[in-house]
Amino acid sequence: MKQIAIIGSGNLAEALARAVAAADGLRLVQLFARNAARGGEVAALARTEWTDDPRRLARADLYLIAVSDRAVGEVAARLPIPDGAAVAHTAGSVPLAALPERFARRGVFYPMQTFTRGREVDFGEIPVFIEASSPALCDELEAFARRLSRTVIRSDSAQRAKVHLAAVFACNFANRMYALGERIARDAGLDFGVLKPLVTETAAKARDARSPLDVQTGPAARHDAATLERHLALLADDPEMQELYSKISQNIWETSKRT
């Protein structure tokens, strides 16, 4: 798998295109994207050609489908991908079976990371979860993945779905908590900058610890009822935030009692 085509122009497609273009022994032959402006932008970043015309789809050894979860099957079905080529989608929670059965060589290439437009990432640090329709293809897909990442894990669709769920809690939900913290800080006349050292140290402790459970702190962990009540009083005008605070605090307390 040396000739690679990427289908899509979103945040993951951009990061993947850059990584493939920079990898030794690989050639990004084309980017296919329906969004003309974004397709041209991503192709320029990766120094490759692009097209939005299925009739001009380039021949490749591997077609990586980096589109929204709901579009994986539809996009794969309507593209004239040559017989014999490998096709892999990049979605964490979408099963291998979402790819049409007409592809004898189908797989999954899921990089577990958060991607943002214009923000470069070190792809070598990203765990990549792979799955394939045959052991032979899995070997090929792993060899390809190891050109991009130092951590490649074979994973079936059921395990990968749980990994994706874990990532949502650890990334998307955690970031939502940062945003809510920012909102409360702004109510106090401060900006998010005052919380950044705390965010950095919290993430570093969780990363370095045996388990995040070992470094849990705060009033809920020590069952500081007086502080919890004061915080709930400050949220009296926002019942939704009160409920969220109560549920998370209760979960921390119940978990801390068992550790």
Rank of each mutant, 00 (worst) to 15 (best):
F173W: 13
G107T: 01
A104G: 08
E14P: 13
D224K: 02
S211V: 02
S68L: 11
L148F: 10
F144T: 04
Y63S: 05
A185P: 09
P100I: 14
A66T: 07
I252P: 04
E254P: 04
V152K: 00
N35Y: 11
E142I: 01
F144C: 05
L31I: 11
P239F: 12
D237L: 02
Y110S: 00
P54L: 07
A58P: 13
R258T: 15
A88Y: 03
E182D: 14
L195Y: 02
A233F: 07
V199A: 08
L12P: 00
V75R: 15
G40S: 12
R207G: 10
A98C: 05
A221L: 06
L64M: 04
A58E: 10
V42L: 02
P197N: 12
T217E: 13
L180F: 06
A66S: 09
I6D: 03
V199N: 00
A161S: 14
P111M: 15
V108G: 05
M112R: 11
L195G: 00
D187H: 15
R258D: 12
Q159L: 14
D156M: 13
Y63E: 05
G40E: 03
N11L: 09
G92Y: 00
N172C: 08
L213E: 15
R146G: 06
A37W: 01
H89D: 12
A161M: 10
H89N: 07
C171G: 08
R34K: 05
R146H: 09
P219T: 07
I153C: 13
C171T: 08
R183C: 12
P239V: 08
A233T: 11
T116V: 14
C171E: 08
E41R: 09
A85T: 09
H89W: 02
F144S: 01
F144G: 01
L190Y: 03
D139H: 05
G107M: 05
K205H: 11
F169P: 04
A170M: 07
E201F: 06
A204V: 02
A225N: 14
N251F: 12
I6W: 00
T202S: 09
V72K: 02
L180P: 01
V163P: 00
D69N: 10
A91E: 01
H89C: 12
H164Y: 03
L28S: 02
E101H: 14
P80V: 11
D224T: 06
A86E: 04
R176S: 14
F32N: 05
L12D: 01
R59M: 08
R18V: 10
